[in-house]
Design a protein around this nucleic acid. Structure first.
Lengths: 199, 199
DNA sequence: CATGTTTTTGACAGCATGTCAAATACCTTC
DNA sequence: GAAGGTATTTGACATGCTGTCAAAAACATG
């Protein structure tokens, strides 16, 4: 066997950075190859297709994100946890220069353009999966808060509401790029669910 | 002058249908030309570029949508108006077979992929503009409701919250395609703002 | 050292956007 | 009614993209 000349993980890292900045459709394998110092053909040989490469890179991102999320949701009062959650979310959207937005949301809206729905469906699953996992974590947090008397409502409905707001924030971020506005909306959402200021 | 052989408005209509179904990046001018019975070159001559054609088609859509929205927001109790608003929104996302999703949200997430930011910025403006106008209409509705004692809160903050939720619904629609879920989230949002069931 | 397997490389097909010059068809003017 | 002008149409071209494939290259193994 001839050994591979490039680092698999480094290519994933470089690729995801480009996908994040320019979207899957806006990124060519030539771009990635140039950045990574790998020939286009080698990428096809190693990953199969652009979508497959994206999928691998995205899974990586999703795993890392869930870890960071668990950390953010793991300490303090319910209000503090939710604040940390929105903070992590918005900070993620606003990372990079210029800000890269939300890769999950972008990915979802890039779906279904071409006929080749083969990997499209797989990607949709991956996006939906991350959203579901995040929702579950938020719901657990709310349930725990409810048990401690910090929340008075339906954890499932509230978690779904919160996740909807974060998806909306991802969209508004692209429309207006107004980070203070995003943070205001997040704070308002928390107030709406927990009650103004008090808790 | 040689007269144009195709109907300008019909091309816009056909083009937007394709953009809506497949996204701007997923639609080629050949696709549109084939459907409309117009040569690709003629489209370039008449519109300049794919993005410019999209922009014209989108402006049309935005105008129509605002009209429908004003109608939906124009009658009944505040709760009824907000319900009609979410209903129009979700019905719009779920129109077509298969459902086409939200063109504004998709358009926003398709931005910034290529370097040619020329028309990108113009498109972003158009998307942001429609969102702003919708927000303003919702805010007016809330203000009127507040004057009639149907709402007790900050109309500006609540309108921004509502618009954020609708953007989130557009994203979840792509992720799960679960229309009942979307309607539940909408109902929950109204309850959160107006108070459960009562008003 | 020879063999075999995998990676790399470069060429190719097919389709996209966008440009351009030449052909075309109508409106206008005489 | 004929001639000219002008905008549209048409087809060819350049460039860049994805994806495929055969040939070349490089290492592991026997």
């Amino acid at each position: 066997m001839r050994p591979r000349e490039f680092d698999h993980d480094e290519v994933l890292r470089i690729a995801f950075d480009q996908f994040w900045r320019k979207g899957v459709r806006g990124t060519s394998l030539s771009d990635i190859g140039r950045d990574a110092g790998v020939q286009r053909g080698s990428l096809y040989n190693a990953f199969g297709s652009k979508e497959a490469l994206f999928l691998q890179a995205y899974e990586r991102y999703a795993g890392d994100y869930l870890l960071a999320l668990q950390k953010a949701l793991g300490a303090g009062s319910l209000r503090r946890r939710l604040t940390a959650f929105f903070d992590l979310t918005i900070t993620n959207f606003r990372s990079g220069t210029p800000p890269r937005g939300c890769p999950t949301t972008r990915g979802l809206m890039e779906l279904g353009a071409a006929e080749g729905e083969g990997l499209d469906e797989e990607a949709r699953q991956a996006f939906a999966d991350l959203i579901s996992r995040i929702t579950a974590l938020v719901q657990d947090t709310l349930s725990a808060g409810a048990e401690r008397g910090e929340f008075n409502g339906n954890p499932a409905a509230a978690a779904l509401h919160i996740i909807t707001v974060t998806r909306g924030l991802a969209v508004l971020e692209r429309a207006f790029g107004d980070e203070p506005q995003l943070r205001k909306i997040a704070a308002h959402t928390i107030d709406l669910l927990l009650g103004r200021k008090g808790g």
